[in-house]
């Protein structure tokens, strides 16, 4: 679904990740693991178009979107869910959803799509008219996730969706990611927490200092001692 070939990206002239190649399959959750500063966020920002890559290629279903800005990337099917449960604080929940549904044409279509997610997350329906800033961190993350899903992406890039939200809500979010994958979507899940991520994903890769050091099936990696070593900086 998403092919990355020899990607190098960073800020200004300084590369943060270099020579990354990976395949993200439809229907699967791919975990990107690594310690703080390993380059995970830079990688997904480059894939989502927020950072222009310095070298390499990004293809979505065979279409080259290298260097495309996010408005093109999202319409091609790659949507980045930023970390930190970010939503538009001074817009209502409804307006947050409305502007996120960039690929939906008619109002009717939008309402139908919303209703689907209101069933999954009834809290959004309840707080539909409230300002997003009045929501809790977890509720905001649910809103942000729904925003991302509303543009009906092929590939969903999730940057640390578990950070800053109540522990009790994490399973709800991970479950929805699994649902998305089971409907044929591809998920890239960036996380620091190893066990939790490996449990929910199908495949995983481990990054350190801007490169991929290890990859494989999540179930295999679960018992692999090398992950811990990489985390320890070795």
């Amino acid at each position: 679904m998403l092919s990355v070939e020899a990607l190098t990206a960073g800020y200004g002239r300084i590369p943060v990740v270099s020579d990354i190649s990976m395949e993200v399959e439809a229907g699967r959750i791919t975990a990107v693991l690594g310690a703080n500063g390993a380059g995970k966020t830079t990688l997904v920002k480059a894939l989502g178009g927020l950072i222009r890559p310095m070298a390499g290629r990004v293809l979505i279903a065979g279409r080259d979107i290298t260097g495309a800005d996010p408005s093109t990337a999202t319409r091609a099917g790659v949507r980045l869910l930023l970390d930190g449960h970010r939503v538009f604080p001074d817009l209502s929940v409804h307006d947050n959803l409305k502007i996120a549904a960039i690929t939906t044409g008619s109002r009717r279509e939008f309402e139908l799509l919303c209703d689907e997610y209101f069933e999954v997350f009834p809290i959004l329906k309840q707080k539909r008219k409230d300002y997003a800033r009045t929501l809790s961190g977890g509720q905001q993350q649910i809103l942000a996730l729904t925003q991302a899903l509303l543009c009906q992406p092929k590939v969903l890039l999730c940057d640390e969706p578990s950070i800053g939200i109540a522990q009790a809500l994490i399973p709800t979010i991970l479950k929805e990611l699994r649902n998305f994958a089971s409907r044929g979507g591809a998920v890239v899940l960036v996380e620091q927490q190893i066990q939790m991520s490996l449990k929910v994903s199908d495949t995983a890769l481990v990054m350190d200092r801007g490169s991929i050091r290890l990859s494989g099936l999540a179930s295999d990696l679960m018992s692999d001692d090398r992950i811990r070593k990489i985390y320890m900086g070795n």
Partner: peptide, 23 residues
Amino acid sequence: RTGVAISALAQDLELARATGLRV
């Protein structure tokens, strides 16, 4: 929709980009 999107730019420009708005 356009107006709401412009308000959104004011609140979080990076999020607006990630959302796919034509900034």
